[in-house]
Design a protein around this nucleic acid. Structure first.
Lengths: 367, 367
DNA sequence: TTGAAAGCGCTAACAT
DNA sequence: ATGTTAGCGCTTTCAA
């Protein structure tokens, strides 16, 4: 860390006390308990402090003594900077920041590169608690967090026993979306999903990988889909499912291409996030497929960009999730059993889902 | 702060050492300098740690000892959560986060409510340095930061002597934009600008307030405008300038309405941010004014939403600013004079600026 | 390779 | 209203 113009480091509380000929307690009180000493003395203390360039009690030393850091740590799956590129993550952050500022707490973004296994940053974080956002259940950073003797709230995933948790019912939400598509008449579908595990697998996903996914959220959404379609007789093993490690529109487009190449007959492309779905829309347009006339596309999250695109999707209260996580963490009280907050979702019927053309044609021709 | 399932707090490095019958140094080394003790002993230490539920060296105590917190503090003008709603701020955050994660540093968002004067959060922040983003020059939080004995980098504003700084040449950029409008033929214009001081003033801005604005960036942009138009003989005192405290599209719209109500004859509405300009576009549409046929509208920042709207604006490298600020802060080296990084901007000629209709008409009628 | 000693700078009982 | 006494839990010379 650079030393700049504004660096000094001589005076401490003790040296100030010595200079003033008072005890350290008195100086401490001047800062922390103004009512514990005469206004006159306090004024003298503060003035001398200024003269000596004493910047006030050192926050770290104070933290050590009081056992309070005044900050909440946030652990994310992704590179720190990713959080600022994903609309859903941004919404979550906003909510969490809201809860923090209400409580007067700082928010420490912990650098946890998912590619490396460098857990040191978790160990070094001077925080009073952690919020863990959407990490895989086998993430070493998560393990490191859970070892720390501070309260922790997990958001979205993973679903751990013994840890406070806030999230939505991903399975039910996706099941509902699937039923919507089924009601429209879709039986031959394809899926584009987000990262299912820590290893990169940009391509088709066998059933085994779907079932063993380390990202609880994705596993649940897949399972909701599978159940709904299996219920109406679809052989899930024959449904093309393509996974993408990076969560971008471009990757959504290329994944959609992969699915459509494998089975051009599908009538609906179900994406497990809006970002991916936005990519799928691009790919559909590129191929001259009209949505929803030729192809139905759905997303998940309910981000603003999706709304603008008229995407049929599931809206989840991302901001509220962040706020709930923060509140849960900072709520006082000894508890014995973990708390779970499950927030509501809403199926958004946009303009990207309709009856499959084949059915419409069948009707048309009086089949 | 809540205590949850995962709270324990018995073992310390000392108790572990006692249990093992070794010195504290040895335990410390087991964590921090694995090469300083036999692998066998280290294994024993770590194993006993696990058994006793010792979570590893306390980060705060370590920080106190090493005088390193492993984190950078970020101070913003706004409520913490605001940072996640403003595209330009998000871009800045992304860049800063990038720099932090590269350096393995955490990023602490310091809660500094601009409405209250509660500086305590700044004092409590356990960080190795501060980045200050776009605060007014008389902000008490800023003063508190500068008192702390850690390096500080200011971004955008204010322009302080003796402090490292990164920003753009707001004056020159706005001057250039103004000249572009002047070249198109605009002489009768209105301005919508962001907050000029800490007090709320949603309305017209007299010259005195323009000149004494505590937000350096806004002051510079205004001054660039004023100079350019004064150069071609426009009486700046007669130009309607409307200020908005809250930086939202809705406020941009209402401010635009205020300007247009005051002088319906203006041919161009210059906004000092894209967000405000987006609002102005809305208001223009609401009034049935075609842009740019009936009214020219310009912004500043170059956010993606502006690009999509085809806004004529000035693009500034927001992400790069964040990264530069982070790098500057973390660059090692004793320095004596403050460093300044000035990044390049670019005039974006979109589809919202054109020759004023009056001129076109004059030409048309062979005036 | 391991240990002993000396604080980092502060706050919080408990006196006075 | 002010001072005394004890650490908070750790790292780091220096010595063995």
């Amino acid at each position: 860390m650079a030393r700049s113009m504004h660096v000094r480091r001589p005076a401490t509380l003790a040296s100030l006390a010595a200079e003033l000929g008072v005890s350290r307690t008195t100086v401490s009180n001047a800062y922390n308990r103004p009512d514990q000493l005469s206004p006159e003395l306090r004024r003298r203390v503060l003035e001398t402090a200024r003269r000596l360039g004493y910047p006030g009690p050192d926050p770290v030393a104070r933290s050590l003594r009081t056992r309070k850091a005044g900050a909440v740590g946030l652990l994310l799956t992704e590179n720190l900077s990713y959080a600022f590129r994903d609309p859903a993550a941004i919404g979550f952050l906003e909510g969490l920041a809201l809860a923090c500022e209400t409580a007067g707490q700082g928010l420490l973004l912990v650098p946890a590169n998912p590619e490396r296994e460098d857990v040191a940053a978790v160990h070094r974080a001077g925080v009073d608690g952690f919020v863990v956002y959407s990490v895989p259940d086998d993430d070493p950073h998560l393990a490191a967090v859970l070892e720390r003797p501070v309260p922790t709230v997990v958001c979205d995933q993973p679903d751990l026993a013994d840890v406070d948790r806030v999230g939505i019912d991903d399975r039910a939400a996706m099941h509902q979306l699937a039923q919507h598509l089924i009601a429209l008449g879709h039986r031959r579908v394809g899926v584009v999903c987000m990262r299912l595990a820590r290893d990169r697998n940009d391509g088709f996903v066998p059933l085994s990988r779907q079932e063993s996914a380390h990202f609880h959220v994705q596993r649940s959404r897949m399972s909701g889909l599978r159940q709904a379609f299996t219920e109406v007789g679809v052989d899930w093993a024959s449904v093309p499912v393509v996974e993408r490690f990076d969560h971008t529109i471009a990757q959504g487009a290329s994944a959609a291409a992969q699915v459509l190449d494998r089975d051009p007959q599908i009538t609906a492309l179900i994406c497990t996030s809006d970002i991916l779905a936005l990519g799928a829309l691009q790919e559909a347009e590129r191929r001259g497929l009209r949505v929803p006339a030729d192809l139905t596309v759905t997303g998940f999250d309910g981000i603003r960009e999706a709304e603008q695109a008229g995407l049929t999707t599931v809206r989840q209260p991302v901001l509220e999730k962040g706020r709930a996580a923060g509140k849960l963490l900072m709520e006082i009280g000894e508890r014995t059993k973990p708390r779970t907050v499950t927030l509501e979702t809403e199926l958004i019927t946009g303009t990207t889902a309709a009856e499959p053309r084949t059915i419409a044609e069948e009707r048309w021709f009086g089949h």
